[in-house]
Design a protein around this nucleic acid. Structure first.
Lengths: 105, 105
DNA sequence: TTGTTATTTTGATAATTGTCAAAACATCAA
DNA sequence: TTGATGTTTTGACAATTATCAAAATAACAA
């Protein structure tokens, strides 16, 4: 993953409302949640959420699918994983044995 | 880690200059680099870097140590790891077997 | 002390961002 | 078609941010 994409993903998540949206979608799983469900749960104006969806979408962090009148959003883990890889690259200056935080998704 | 700290860390890294600073410090290891070395390497005015150091520092992502007239900065991995944990929490909706990206450090 | 070097603070400016009401658009049902 | 519902776009406003020159602060050397 290149620096520009990582920056976009970080910027997208570096905002309270969007971070909550993303976490709700992560928790919701593959089914996702509709725009309206998210707006109600977060108590944010639909117009504001729409604005944030765009940011998350352009960063590749979420995907959308139309279902009748509803639009369902779901998280896409790939970009987040790429972002994490980028951040942890060279972690501990290459001395992996210094790192005590093994992680599995 | 709580949402407020995660947001601060994300916001701190969501900026080109600061992301580069952080990655240089990650690569530099425990010795770190002086403010001047970073300013030269990144071709950014010292005043601008100073501004960014503050942001990274208040997010807990870097630490500083005075050495004579120089100030050495180094990365602190704890906050980044906490941030990653927060983002990957509930990843795959609890179905860990869906995740193919084991990660270490 | 005086001068030099390394860094930070201040102050000003331009650009970006988050918010929501109102209007527009899209989908369905009758 | 008409009306109702779900979502997005538009437009306006306030707040935040990134930048750097100039001035201030801090540490050393002579």
């Amino acid at each position: 993953m290149e620096s520009g994409s990582v920056l976009k993903a970080l910027a997208a998540l570096a905002q309270a409302t969007r971070l909550e949206v993303y976490r709700l979608l992560v928790a919701a799983g593959p089914e996702g949640m509709s725009a309206g469900q998210l707006a109600e749960k977060l108590e944010v104006a639909p117009a504001s959420l729409s604005f944030h969806f765009k940011t998350l979408y352009h960063a590749g962090l979420i995907e959308s699918q139309q279902k009748g009148r509803f639009i369902y959003y779901r998280a896409n883990f790939e970009v987040m994983n790429g972002m994490v890889d980028y951040l942890t690259e060279n972690c501990c200056g290459g001395n992996a044995e210094l790192c005590k935080t093994p992680r599995k998704c």
